[in-house]
């Protein structure tokens, strides 16, 4: 009987570890694809919602200010870094590219702010995805 209990306890522990390790991979990827989703799937509803709002507002405010969405490029270093920042927004980036949003407008001063908004939205989303990973591995509550 004791052996059965031990086996069950070990099995539960193994299952828990497997769940944690898979969540440690799934949460940051989900959080990257859709801002806040990494927290939602770990039942951090309010945090996820706030993160989602922050990234969405920054991304769409950037588009509204006619900011530029960088495509993949191997040209100027700042353009490459812009692409790296932009792609941090996950699906938002791919949707913007598919819909041909974010052509940029060099005639408007705030369009440059918009470009920075979009890049920073991606970078903030990467920070949020890393946070989701930390929650999954138990480094954070």
């Amino acid at each position: 009987m004791a052996n059965v209990q031990n086996t069950t306890a070990t099995g539960t522990a193994k299952t828990g570890t497997a769940t944690n390790s898979s969540m440690a991979i799934i949460a940051p990827i989900a959080g990257w694809l859709l801002p806040g989703l990494g927290h939602f799937i770990q039942r951090r509803w309010i945090r996820g919602l706030l993160l989602m709002l922050a990234v969405f507002i920054m991304f769409f405010a950037g588009l509204g200010m006619q900011g530029k969405v960088y495509g993949f490029n191997t040209g100027d270093l700042l353009d490459i870094l812009g692409f790296v920042g932009d792609i941090g927004s996950g699906l938002l980036y791919f949707i913007a590219r598919a819909m041909d949003w974010g052509a940029g407008n060099i005639q408007r001063a705030v369009a440059d702010y918009g470009t920075k908004y979009i890049v920073v939205a991606g970078l903030l989303n990467i920070i949020a995805a890393v946070d989701a990973h930390h929650i999954a591995i138990g480094k954070k509550q």
């Binding site: 945090r47 706030l50 709002l53 922050a54 920054m58 920073v120 939205a121 903030l124 890393v130 946070d131």
Partner: peptide
């Protein structure tokens, strides 16, 4: 927006 993300993370 940046403060919200910094605060949470």
């Amino acid at each position: 927006c940046a403060s919200t993300v910094f605060g949470i993370t």
